[in-house]
Design a protein around this nucleic acid. Sequence first.
DNA 1: GTCTATATTGTGATAGAC
DNA 2: GTCTATCACAATATAGAC
Lengths: 193, 193
Amino acid sequence: MAVEPSTSERLLTTAADLFRRKGYAQATTRELSDALGIRKASLYHHISTKEDLLYAISMHSLARIAEAAEAAAAQAPAEERLRAVIRAHVVSALGERDMQMVTAIELRALSPERRREVIAERDRYQALVRRLIAADQQAGRLRGDIDSKLLTLSLLNLLNWTIFWFDPDDELSPEQLGETLAAVFVEGATGRA
Amino acid sequence: MAVEPSTSERLLTTAADLFRRKGYAQATTRELSDALGIRKASLYHHISTKEDLLYAISMHSLARIAEAAEAAAAQAPAEERLRAVIRAHVVSALGERDMQMVTAIELRALSPERRREVIAERDRYQALVRRLIAADQQAGRLRGDIDSKLLTLSLLNLLNWTIFWFDPDDELSPEQLGETLAAVFVEGATGRA
DNA sequence: GTCTATATTGTGATAGAC
DNA sequence: GTCTATCACAATATAGAC
């Protein structure tokens, strides 16, 4: 006998799906309550404001990737660490595309204080990746002629847009895409590494 | 004696600045008219709907990059063509960051028909880049073990997010950033090309 | 090409019963 | 935890004078 997920359990994923499709500001609380099968007023038993949902989605998204990356980094030997983190990042991001897309796009809709919090969380992850890259540079595994900050931003560019075009119906799995993006970043489009 | 730009000439850039800061849906016609120094109703002498502005911004942004890239491709010899296009893309995108950011983020706010038009324009540019990459693969200048479509999407990931973190006050110029991103894409983070 | 004034609609959120 | 009913306000867009 399947246990039906409660309203509060469905709240974040349902909101993320709606926000991704319509945009946060264009999505109405009415549409959200309809999707949940409850009345609009009943939403406010679970949240205080619509913005609570965006904030929760954003913090959850960032934590999810950071945790996956940290776990991957802890397990892998130094020589494989960056590639393992790239794969973990891609796989965890693609596993929750709605939330990740909303987080990537709707930052401006948050209040200044919450926006600051989300940015701090994002920067924390960026710093983690930068440390990995700098370590690889010092070990001679990555080129030293480009600043680690710029390499980090390049890598995150590469990884963060994939959620917008990855097609789960494609033959390419998230794991394979992660592997490919790792190859593109590390070896380049030339590929003579 | 400086000629003051007319309201209609300032319309797109002013709207782009506003949409970037607040988001399209959150930005009000009132804020836009205030920024232009006219009354809200006067806007409707220039446009029919607020969406007209977003559509115009999006089409302009895509055309600007495509034109810059096409010009660069036409001028450069085959061996330098891809790098030249990357530089042209980055420089032209960073030269109009407000419009490019709005275009990248607000696609969903367009009506279905206009959204389709904008996507078609974007796909047209993507096809152009893919032809360049495929040609380099066939000439042996780029690796052949990764599909040209995936290499193209990787490259556009790399280029399209830069507008969100490029800092014009940095010591790094758009030209230098373009050069660096070209190096990262072609040679990779390892850099032994 | 800009103005004042207003129509019209839809929004996020609340009060209070069950 | 969900409901009915409603508030208070802000939004896009229009009418018509100057």
